[in-house]
Computed example of a mutant assay.
Amino acid sequence: MTITIDPVATAGLVAREIRTAERDGAPTKVAVARRTYAADRADLWDALTSPERLPRWFLPVSGDLTMGGRYQLEGNAGGTVERCDAPESFAVTWEFGGSVSWLEVSLSDSDRGTVLELVHEASVPPELWDQYGPGATGVGWDLALMGLGLHVADPSAPLDPQASEAWSLSPDGVAFARLAATRWADAAIVDGDDPDAARAAAERTVAFYTTAPEA
């Protein structure tokens, strides 16, 4: 898949929100991302849940994708399917690096296609939030939502991980990450974060996503 997008316009397709919440007595941060896709709900649901289509825009998945089943994304998170109401919404645990968070995705019809709302709730260590803010996971979800948009536009095109990595380090990729991280910082500021600290954390997030890994 060749990535040819307007990074500013594409990053601007996502509406972002941060909420401070609580789960089982522990404080959490909730990141909400919404984007409208020019696709019907059944097709978008299939792209989100089909083991055959997920690798074309996200990651290969294994396991049981039915209610109560365990799934594993290659090289990334795994978890349990807690709820599945096709073709409207699903909820899963998101288990990675020894931590557990909670992900819910819902779809609704609109006059421009289908609105996808992604809600990711996590108990974030204060030092990690201070360092990166919501962009630590938020920019990753932005990249996934971009990949989904490219897939919906051309379902037959395979995902090329090398092309995706090269794009993330290109001027367009850096511009996309910077705008996405800035918008997540803006959302955190609305939720009550210190503006200067939030914007500094966003810059560290940009560096994280746009610095080539050491050989």
Rank of each mutant, 00 (worst) to 15 (best):
P134S: 08
A15I: 11
D194N: 14
P213C: 02
Q162Y: 10
P134C: 05
A200I: 14
L44N: 01
S170P: 00
G12C: 09
D191R: 14
D160T: 07
A166L: 11
P125C: 02
Q131W: 13
W184N: 10
E203F: 13
A188E: 03
F208H: 10
G147M: 01
T28C: 08
D111T: 14
L44F: 15
T2V: 15
A91M: 10
V139R: 00
A136Q: 10
F96M: 11
G147Y: 05
G69A: 06
E74S: 14
G63K: 03
P126Y: 10
D46W: 11
A180L: 06
P158Q: 04
S89Q: 09
T28V: 04
D191I: 11
W129A: 04
G133V: 09
A77W: 08
V8H: 15
G69C: 10
L116G: 00
A91W: 13
A15C: 08
T36G: 14
E117S: 14
W45E: 06
A215C: 09
A21S: 14
L48S: 05
A187D: 00
T211F: 10
D40V: 14
G97Q: 07
E52V: 15
L145K: 14
P27R: 00
P125Y: 03
A212H: 08
I18F: 04
W167S: 00
V152G: 02
G140Q: 03
R35A: 04
Y71E: 07
